[in-house]
Design a protein around this nucleic acid. Structure first.
Length: 154
DNA sequence: GCCAACGTTGGC
DNA sequence: GCCAACGTTGGC
């Protein structure tokens, strides 16, 4: 069992949107490091921290889980998709995705500021300087610490 | 909206 | 293989 943090811009797709949909294909990842996590390491049942990025209140908004094995992202072959990648070979797709299932919203959002201030998290890909990875690994200890902030006063 | 940091592209 | 130009990410 592994744990992950996955970023989404709430104005595009928020934890409320996932709650409504239940399960959603996590398409559009176009970064090789993130692709490798998805394709090579994610397993059904892995825990996912749903992170709201590029918004007024960045932070972990809820919990989800990996709901499928990795499979090729269909949007790379869709000419009208903004994720279309004409250079991706049909017989060796470049981009992969998993389905993600809603588990629950957190009682309170765990803000980026809270994560930056918690020294117990140690080396954490999310708070490394200049980090832009949209899918990143979280250790079991980090997972517990982050969710432990759920009921902090806002 | 600004801008620093980063990844990718393409000329050489 | 180098590196400048460009596009994107994401906090602020």
């Amino acid at each position: 069992m592994h744990y992950w943090l996955m970023k989404s811009e709430p104005q595009t797709f928020s934890i409320e949107d996932l709650a409504r949909k239940g399960v959603e294909p996590w398409d559009g990842v176009r970064n090789y490091q993130a692709r490798n996590f998805i394709r090579d390491a994610m397993r059904v049942g892995d825990g996912v921290l749903f992170y709201h990025s590029n918004c007024a209140e960045p932070g972990v908004a809820g919990i989800a889980e990996v709901a499928s094995a990795a499979y090729p992202d269909p949007s790379q072959f869709a000419p009208r998709s903004k994720y279309h990648d004409p250079g991706s070979p049909r017989d060796a797709p470049r981009w992969w995705l998993v389905d993600v299932r809603f588990v629950r919203k957190l009682a309170h959002m765990v803000s980026l500021q809270t994560l930056q201030r918690d020294a117990r998290l140690g080396d954490f890909a999310l708070t490394r300087r200049g980090n832009r990875l949209s899918v990143l690994p979280v250790s079991a200890a980090q997972w517990r610490i982050i969710i432990g902030h759920e009921k902090d006063p806002v």
